[in-house]
């Protein structure tokens, strides 16, 4: 799947750039494309290292367990395929919370860790499990309660009320998430017959 997206992006992008007579730009893009990726990585690296460090402390102090106990009843409904004490649940909960608070960059380490935990129990290593898909639907829906970046940008551009979009944002997010979960639910049910 990722292969198709990647190939589609590269081919459509390249051909369109050539057709519009901008070969020079394409040339540039290909030669410097790697550097942009590296830049993103170098921005991610310290965050990932710091947050996985802090989360290890949280895990060892059992606070992660306490926290996931709180949201467990809710998460178990969403992830019926996971046992109640699955280690991934704590990371999933942390990921959702970080996302909800608009801390996208802090959410990524939790998300990656959750995927790693889910992969450990995956009988078929190259195929996504049901829990992985449900988690990604929740994650990509982006349950944002405080869209911090948007508010900061609005403030910067002189908005009279930068946070007035919070409620409308939450409503739109809810529509997106609920529909994603319903879609996922029916896909799963169809498979089980």
């Amino acid at each position: 799947m990722v292969t198709y997206i990647w190939v589609f992006f590269v081919i459509v992008g390249s051909f369109f750039t050539i057709f519009t007579g901008n070969v020079e730009a394409l040339n540039n893009e290909i030669l410097k494309g790697g550097a942009d990726g590296l830049k993103l990585l170098s921005e991610m690296l310290p965050l990932l290292v710091l947050w996985t460090g802090i989360m290890q402390v949280a895990e060892d102090s059992k606070i992660l367990e306490l926290f996931s106990n709180l949201v467990r009843p809710f998460l178990c409904k969403l992830f019926p395929s996971l046992p109640k004490n699955h280690p991934a649940l704590g990371y999933i909960a942390s990921n959702i919370c970080a996302n909800a608070l608009g801390l996208g960059s802090a959410a990524t380490p939790f998300g990656l860790k959750a995927m790693e935990c889910l992969q450990e129990d995956n009988p078929c290593k190259d195929t996504a499990t049901e829990a992985m898909i449900t988690f990604l639907v929740l994650n990509t829906g982006g349950v944002t309660i405080v869209p911090t970046t948007v508010i900061a940008l609005r403030l910067m551009h002189g908005s009279a009320n930068p946070s007035e979009i919070i409620i409308t944002s939450i409503l739109a997010t809810l529509c997106s998430n609920v529909s994603g979960l319903i879609y996922d639910y029916f896909k799963r049910r169809k498979k089980h017959g």
């Binding site: 990722v2 195929t127 898909i133 994603g180």
Partner: peptide, 24 residues
């Protein structure tokens, strides 16, 4: 996110993950 999370654990068969995400 899909590309990143799935490639971090080397899952290539992603079933309805993309369609669900894009639908949402």
């Amino acid at each position: 996110v899909l590309a990143l999370y799935f490639s971090s654990i080397k899952v290539t068969k992603t079933k309805h993950a993309l369609s669900a995400g894009l639908f949402a």
